[in-house]
Amino acid sequence: MTATDISKLIVRTSMRDRAAFDLLYRQTNAKLFGVCLRVLTDRAEAEEALQEVYVKIWTKADRYAVSDLSPISWLVAVARNHAIDRIRTRRVKQTGLDEAAEIADPTPGPEALAVAGDEGARVHHCLEELEADRAAAVRGAYLVGESYAELAERHGVPLNTMRTWLRRSLMKLKDCLER
């Protein structure tokens, strides 16, 4: 089969001519399988890739432009590029244990947990030194995430009074923690 004949088959395939596509497959599958096998080096994977290559040829035959280049060159390029893409996706999926060792563990270590536990106990102790309503407001604002307006409403005080309570309570906590 000549290059002109293959070119005509590709053009007819772009028009969804199944008979032309069947003939194109029979005339070129051995060559394209060889390309896939050479790139992928695994027969089963090359066979699977070849099927995917022909699906691409069926869906993208309209992108083939008749030119001075051989039509088989276009088909080989489709097969080669697809096989290379399969290798690239395989590399992404295969992350080894060596790479996992380089990833830092975001959880705190035993020393950090011990220090945090001590700090938490100190903060809790200092919160107990505050008046009950002030301690509840600090816990609500900084541990629960309540807004100043929500706290003011819950404690039945004006908004500016709540701001003052929180500012003064934080100053007392700072003094307590520095002792």
Rank of each mutant, 00 (worst) to 15 (best):
L69E: 11
K56C: 12
A49E: 04
I87W: 07
I84F: 05
K93I: 09
R90P: 06
E45I: 11
D42L: 09
D98G: 12
T89G: 13
N81Q: 08
R80D: 01
A100P: 08
W74I: 00
G96H: 06
D62H: 11
T59V: 09
K60A: 10
A46H: 01
E48L: 10
D68V: 00
P71W: 00
A100F: 11
V92S: 06
D68G: 07
L40Y: 03
E52C: 09
L69Q: 14
T59Q: 14
V78L: 00
V55Y: 13
T41L: 09
S73Q: 04
K56A: 13
L37K: 08
V66N: 06
Y64S: 01
L69I: 10
I87F: 07
S67T: 07
V92W: 07
A100S: 12
E47C: 03
K56I: 10
K93L: 14
K60W: 07
I87E: 15
S67F: 00
K60G: 10
R63P: 03
V39P: 00
A77L: 03
V76I: 12
E52L: 07
V66K: 08
R38A: 12
A61M: 03
K93R: 15
R86L: 11
W58M: 06
A46P: 01
L69M: 13
T59L: 10
A101D: 13
V55A: 12
A101E: 14
T41Q: 15
Y54A: 02
V66W: 06
D68H: 03
Q94A: 11
A77W: 01
E48I: 14
S70D: 14
S67Q: 05
E45R: 11
I72S: 07
L37Y: 13
Y54N: 02
I87P: 02
I84Q: 02
S73C: 06
Y54K: 05
I84K: 01
D98F: 08
I87S: 11
R86Q: 12
R38P: 03
A49D: 06
A101H: 14
R90T: 09
R38Q: 13
E99W: 06
K93E: 12
A83S: 09
A83N: 01
I57C: 03
A49Y: 04
E52Q: 10
V53C: 02
Y64M: 00
L75S: 04
T41D: 14
T89E: 12
